[in-house]
Design a protein around this nucleic acid. Sequence first.
DNA 1: TTCAAAAAGTGACCATGGTCAATTATAAAT
DNA 2: ATTTATAATTGACCATGGTCACTTTTTGAA
Lengths: 193, 193
Amino acid sequence: MNKPIQKRAIATREKLLSTARALIDQEGFEALRVEDLVRTAGVAKGTFFAHFKDKDALMEQIIGARLAEISAEADQAPAPQNVAEMVATLNPLIAFMTSERYVFDVILRYSGAAAISEIGPIAEQFTVQGELFARWVAQGPFRKDIPADLAGDGIGAFLIQSIALTFCALHCSSAIEPRLATYLDAWLLPSGA
Amino acid sequence: MNKPIQKRAIATREKLLSTARALIDQEGFEALRVEDLVRTAGVAKGTFFAHFKDKDALMEQIIGARLAEISAEADQAPAPQNVAEMVATLNPLIAFMTSERYVFDVILRYSGAAAISEIGPIAEQFTVQGELFARWVAQGPFRKDIPADLAGDGIGAFLIQSIALTFCALHCSSAIEPRLATYLDAWLLPSGA
DNA sequence: TTCAAAAAGTGACCATGGTCAATTATAAAT
DNA sequence: ATTTATAATTGACCATGGTCACTTTTTGAA
């Protein structure tokens, strides 16, 4: 009935997370190998999988936490008052999501989340971002003919679209930020209003 | 200097593709195992990887071809004259992209394509779709304050967004088509024009 | 303090995608 | 027909994520 979690287990989990972060800082997300991680952390492979469903689940924790930091930072700043400011405020988020193709892939995979029952940190961050974007729209001189949360969804959609195109051979000609600005102009200020 | 491709190789490649399609028809994309494929096709494993860079490259061919069929079909139909018709016309595309989570993942991964040098079938289909969507906007009673290809990009972005949310635990409450319709209304007919 | 049940941890083992040196089939030149 | 370069194929082998029956540690009750 009861299922008390032992201190030992919490310590092990922390050890795995901190070791993973250290390895990722050195070599990047893509290069992380579970075997390296468990050897460095000094635990058995099975222990890792007792703590994380799979390798992606670990990545989700770490990437989700990073996203949360970035969102929190953006949440501090005043709401942008035009598209250029908005793109500038999004810059740290863009920088992280484009830092590695692998990171973007994990984010996409988990944004359309795992099981219904458990919403992971990345899916949760999408909700948080949605609220942030909605607030921006509400507090800035942007279109008011649609609900703010709908407008926020659109910002998210165009952010993803811009990043995806950045990774795409066909479109790498133009840089990501001007492209996003073009989209957001059309989305948030239709008819050049 | 010359590198003539032998008939034998073409036959082997076709055999691999047709066998793969047959197996996928039976069990779905996700369940395909390279070992099953080569055994059924009667070739060695190495042969498979001589023809396709990796498993994903095979999937890209098959999924890309399917996308091309669907686009071609949609291209036949007259341009939709309102958002409801547009969503209806998009239905086969939505159905395929949501048929398996794995399919959507592959499409996302390859839409932001592989190497700069070679554009794969999926990335190519995104271009084709972009052109189709632009034509729709141009030929229908939709906003004309932005270039048609920009408006087309937005349709693509909201299509992806809607599908991603479908796979997402947080939002499965509402069905995909009404959600897409809401997005497209706001995108294509701002200010309720 | 002792003991049983449950939690945590272990590592040999498996599944599957992918590699590559060696072999065989093909086609062009003689 | 023979030779020769190279395209095509092979399958043993590797890399890496993931499993599970078993062992060790912890905890709480007697």
